[in-house]
Amino acid sequence: MVVGLTGGIGSGKTTVANIFSKFKNVAIYCADDEAKKLMNTSLEIKSKLINLFGETSYLDNQLNRKFIASIVFKDKEKLNALNSIVHPVVRKHFKDFVELHVNKDYILYENAILFESKSNLKCDIVISVFAPKNIRIERTMLRDGSLKKEVENRINNQWLEDKKLLQSNYIINNFNDKDIDSQVFIIHNILTKKRSCF
């Protein structure tokens, strides 16, 4: 069973995924982290990104993330082109990961753009992590040292929260000191019981 985990930037997806990782019967796949690794290790991705963005795409053989971000979060066509290069490789990598972890009760697939990339169609269940926009902006600025405008540009390239929440099976609220541990524990127990249905 594949369980998608998503939420807007700064909503706390990684915090929630870390809580799920405490359960031994769950395997966690973080699409963002794996994509970053693949952009540095996959020769196929590297050559295509250099072809699209130029030699400045990589510095010392590492992806020049700031340079790429400065382009794609202002230009939807370039963002779509980037995604069309990276997503197929990540999808194949995830498929291999699922096959390696068939013994687990479920795979938690953390993906910031789960709906935008249509990856939700590969999931049996979807969980969204929710926090108000002002809290998400503040968290991201503190975490990344980003400017408010940079964070807003990234938010504008993601689906609206209402649209995500309406298509989710479960919602975890991560604001006002909500106890997310207990929310995760309840959902995990339900999913573990559901596993027998898949």
Rank of each mutant, 00 (worst) to 15 (best):
F20T: 05
R136V: 05
K37S: 11
S47T: 14
K122C: 09
F130N: 13
R65W: 08
S42V: 11
I9M: 05
D124V: 01
I137C: 05
N153Q: 13
K178C: 09
F20Q: 03
W159F: 15
N18Y: 01
N51T: 05
K149S: 14
S42M: 06
F23N: 11
E77R: 09
I9K: 06
T14I: 02
K118F: 11
F67S: 05
P132L: 01
K78Y: 10
L121V: 00
E161D: 15
T56M: 10
M141V: 10
D179R: 02
L82F: 11
Y170C: 08
A35P: 06
T56Q: 14
K193E: 15
K118V: 06
D33A: 11
Q158W: 00
N111G: 03
S168T: 09
N64L: 12
N18Q: 11
G12Q: 04
Q62A: 10
V98G: 01
L166K: 15
T56W: 00
K22P: 00
E152D: 07
F23K: 07
L100N: 12
E99S: 14
S168A: 14
V184S: 08
L108Y: 01
I85V: 10
A35H: 01
Q167H: 13
N25L: 09
I187N: 04
F23A: 05
L166Q: 14
Q158R: 04
V98Q: 03
L121T: 13
I135Q: 05
M141T: 05
I28T: 10
N120H: 15
V72T: 04
D162K: 14
D33G: 05
L100C: 10
T41F: 09
D96F: 02
F73I: 01
N61Q: 09
V86I: 14
D177V: 02
K46V: 03
A112L: 06
L160W: 04
M39C: 14
T6C: 06
I127S: 04
Y170N: 04
F185I: 13
K178Q: 13
K194D: 09
V98H: 05
F94D: 04
V129P: 00
F185P: 00
N64F: 09
L63N: 10
L142M: 11
I186P: 01
L52D: 02
D33N: 14
F198E: 10
I28Q: 04
A31V: 12
